[in-house]
């Protein structure tokens, strides 16, 4: 564990707490893509199948995995049951089958072994890299967002960005090579946040509302 990865994981945790806070305090899931949240559940469940093997890494690792699975399912419950009337599917129109299909194909081509752990793991890495797209697409359609929602997306972007220096650090301090699948997918994922990040830094952090140019 190094500084960048710890900070990245904490940023990931923070993003989930920001999202929960947004839904609970506004009593609304307006502006949040249900499809992106469904994809995150799929990502966590397929990636953390190794929990079932009880191959223990650390308490940190196990607790975080359980938290990510549990909180992502809880968010679906909040959106679909508790605050269902505030969820507007008519603007959440990204076709997620166009993400799921190619990720499934990629995971069959690029993986670290044809096993029931490695193929879902690889699939989850590819899927995570594009899981934010329905959310960004929704933002694009509405052209604006509540400030708290932009903090949520920014925390997710920071988490991804921090994993890159983590890999560089690990490359130079450890002697076991590069996780090419995670690194390539991670760079793609981080790149998807660049546009958003620019507006976040130049508008939201300067105290303005998040609005896309017409």
């Amino acid at each position: 564990m190094n500084f960048f990865r710890l900070l990245g994981d904490l940023s990931h945790l923070a993003s989930i707490f920001i999202l929960l806070h947004k839904i609970q305090t506004t009593r609304s899931c307006r502006g949040i893509s249900f499809k992106t949240q469904v994809l995150y559940v799929v990502v966590f469940v397929t990636r953390y199948l190794d929990l079932l093997t009880f191959q223990f890494h650390s308490i940190y690792n196990t607790v975080m995995k359980l938290f990510f699975i549990g909180s992502s399912i809880y968010i679906l419950y909040l959106m679909r049951v508790r605050f269902r009337p505030t969820n507007d599917p008519s603007i959440d129109t990204f076709r997620i089958e166009y993400l799921l299909g190619p990720c499934a194909v990629l995971s069959l081509i690029f993986n670290y072994g044809y096993t029931w752990l490695e193929i879902p793991w690889s699939f989850s890495i590819f899927l995570e890299s594009v899981a934010i797209l329905p959310q960004l697409f929704m933002l694009q359609r509405t052209g604006e967002a509540e400030t708290i929602t932009t903090h949520y997306i920014a925390a997710l972007g920071a988490y991804r960005a921090l994993y890159i220096p983590n890999w560089i650090f690990r490359y130079f301090t450890e002697d076991n090579g590069v996780d090419a699948i995670a690194v390539v997918a991670g760079i793609v994922q981080t790149a998807l946040y660049v546009d958003f990040g620019w507006i976040y830094f130049t508008k939201v952090l300067q105290g303005q509302k998040f609005e896309l140019p017409a």
């Binding site: 994981d9 670290y112 793991w121 076991n176 090579g177």
Partner: peptide, 10 residues
Amino acid sequence: TGAGRKKDEL
């Protein structure tokens, strides 16, 4: 171990 998946990452 060689290049490959980092099983300790989340």
